[in-house]
Design a protein around this nucleic acid. Structure first.
Lengths: 162, 162
DNA sequence: AGATAAAAGCAAATAATTTGCGTTAGTGGT
DNA sequence: ACCACTAACGCAAATTATTTGCTTTTATCT
């Protein structure tokens, strides 16, 4: 719905009209457009499904990270991240990071159940997620090869790779 | 000058008045406040000095990274990053990353001259800068201990640590 | 049902943004 | 030195967004 519009065209009076409310209602609830978009983006970033279970946990990880990178690199993804970071309040950014960690914890738990060695949450966040996000935000979005490279570097020696 | 004002109070008509120009001049040049702030922030992020030369190159690195983290974590720093990332145009973000890499390259060159082993630019960006920036943007700004930990992990074995 | 408080509508007032048009400053060619 | 020519600016009117005071609705608790 909102996705079909150019961002520059989105305005509070317009949103109000679509929602059949007066603009002042929205202004009072959110303050300004940035705050509203940040909330919307954060809610849309919430994962609705657990990481897919393919074969080995490493494949699960590779697949999940690759999808994560793709989604975040896409036009819509980058727009949502921007909306979240554009606002002084850090609550939505933390929520967003929380979603990521929650997904990764599922994989970690899966590995633990199977008794397979696996990177820690911190390692995954620092050495995989962070570099991907940095590239998206400050450089060029990483391609698949780059993402695989980052991921495979945290996979323990002797692990059953894809 | 701008730093003394609350961000919410900064408006284009106000800036125009201070600059003794008409608002329309600024609107035509920058489009909107976000674009202007992004440009200002990027120019202020440009380093005006090379990384300090203390003792070993590792100390130089530790010191520089620590200062980088401090500056970026500060209120003003976070504000500038936000301004840069808030805008669709990625030119300023790339410029910002470029400044960081330029500084790191100085350290790398310094290590090379001395024949000391040193992390590559990619390692530094991926494993030190990116995690720091991710924490600043999405979690809590890293404390000194955390920053030192990230840095020391990329320092080669057997290196002359501080 | 009645009282109360939080949220929403409405409309006037204020502020920001856009736009058309006339003017000025700077540039290159003769 | 002069004359186009272009790009940027000033000015002011028109448009649009934002804020605000006050009223009305809606939901909740007693």
């Amino acid at each position: 719905m909102l996705a079909v519009m150019d961002r520059a065209e989105v305005t509070i009076p317009l949103i109000a009209q679509r929602a059949n409310v007066t603009p002042s209602t929205i202004y009072r609830r959110w303050g300004d457009l940035q705050d509203l978009l940040a909330d919307v983006a954060a809610s849309r970033l919430q994962p609705e499904t657990e990481p897919a279970e393919t074969g080995s946990v490493y494949e699960d990880l590779q697949a999940w990270v690759e999808q994560y990178a793709d989604e975040m690199s896409s036009g819509a993804g980058r727009e949502m991240i921007r909306d979240i970071l554009s606002v002084p309040d850090t609550a939505n950014a933390e929520k967003c990071s929380g979603y990521t960690q929650q997904q990764l914890r599922v994989l970690i738990a899966r590995a633990q159940e199977r008794g397979e060695p696996f990177p820690t949450l911190t390692e995954l966040m620092d050495y995989v997620i962070s570099p991907i996000m940095y590239r998206i935000l400050f450089e060029q979005p990483p391609n698949a090869e780059c993402v695989r490279g980052l991921t495979s570097r945290v996979i323990p020696e002797g692990a059953v790779k894809s």
